[in-house]
Design a protein around this nucleic acid. Structure first.
Lengths: 211, 211
DNA sequence: TAGATTGTTAATCGATTAACAATC
DNA sequence: TAGATTGTTAATCGATTAACAATC
């Protein structure tokens, strides 16, 4: 692996990737300007970001979207399906399981866990919901690349501990609380209400500036 | 309103707020160190961030979590319930409607729209799903503070246009595609697959660094 | 007073932007 | 060649960190 890619760049690469997937079928070249427009970045940002991955374009011409798409996917570590364990089969968990965007982009939810007897044994997106008691055993038998926590906040830490026990090194946490894990585990926190609150702040500023 | 708060700070304030809500009932002072631990920030960051809002703590003592919580809520524009229109009553939309984290934090989903006749007329989280054709009219009659797009990517731009027509100035877009709106509209893009992809990148780096 | 912790300054670090030579 | 667009450099901007005086 080459030198590390700046955090801000890593955060944008998936958007570029999504855009390239969108246009790769219908066009044979895209410019940094095109990518910028399609993703909300600036053209200079796009070129700078891509330059971290090597020399990918052709001066005077642009980039080949199919080539660039494959390069980005590889740079992000998306070659091959990543097996995902989902914990929490409630509303959010079910939504995530049914969300089309995952399977089409290199992630496969292979197991779903819950602690509610009423849910255990039911099917979500064609996958049987299993008891949370089986998570550690299952993970040791057949490792998960990524674990997703979609439980209420109160259960999140215990679930994170189980995931670590099961050998999961990367966790995406949708529960609105911080989970603590040992070093070497990567945890990403996504709080849906947080996004609304950030929006609320800019909403008000915008309203005031119009006044 | 005082001077603008830096973007990076705005992005962290909701996390501080969530932490303060958690501890306000059980303790009467928190230090910047406590907040940092509970939110994944650093103590210096916390103090710097809070200093943008004024002098909120007491040297040698710390912050009053209840006072700080109310201050943060006000700074974020969360005083009073913000009326939210949700478009898309599929899996993700239903999950969002049922997600407890919104109502408890100043947001109320007051209307849900869809274009699928099978869904129109059904109830989600106690709210009747209405035809998308009524969105503009409804919004003009009784304005929405915020619109949430939870439709497939293909419908997102059309929905965004309708929301703008309905007078909605702030949009949270969960569809995996950029939507374009006129200036003065604030759009925030949340892509769930993007979060997984970012995680996948750091996952691989972590794995490599251990090797 | 002694210990603790804020608020703020200055130094460092990283990201963005503008500009342009390289090159198709 | 002329026009277009990349890859890269240097300048600017903003965010983080460390340190400490102020003050409870």
């Amino acid at each position: 692996m080459q030198q590390p890619i700046p955090r801000a760049t890593v955060a944008r690469l998936p958007r570029y990737l999504r855009y390239l997937e969108e246009v790769a079928a219908s066009t044979t070249t895209v410019s940094s300007e095109d990518i910028a427009e399609g993703t909300g970045a600036t053209a200079a940002q796009v070129r700078k970001d891509l330059s971290h991955l090597g020399t990918l374009g052709t001066r005077g011409v642009g980039y080949d979207p199919a080539v660039l798409r494959d390069l980005l996917a590889r740079a992000l570590g998306l070659s091959g399906d990543l097996q995902v364990a989902l914990v929490g089969a409630g509303n959010l968990g079910s939504a995530l399981a049914n969300y089309g965007g995952f399977s089409s982009r290199g992630f496969e939810i292979v197991a779903i866990y819950d602690n509610d007897p009423d849910r255990i044994g039911t099917e979500v997106h064609g996958i049987e919901v299993r008891s949370i008691d089986r998570l550690v055993e299952d993970g040791r038998l057949s490792p998960f690349a990524i674990g997703i926590i979609a439980t209420p906040a109160g259960a999140a830490q215990a679930v994170a501990d189980l995931l670590v026990d099961a050998g999961v090194g990367s966790i995406l946490n949708f529960a609105p609380t911080m989970v603590r894990t040992s070093d070497g585990t990567v945890v990403r926190q996504v709080d849906l209400a947080t996004e609304l609150q950030i929006l609320a702040y800019y909403r008000r500023r915008e309203a005031t500036s119009r006044a």
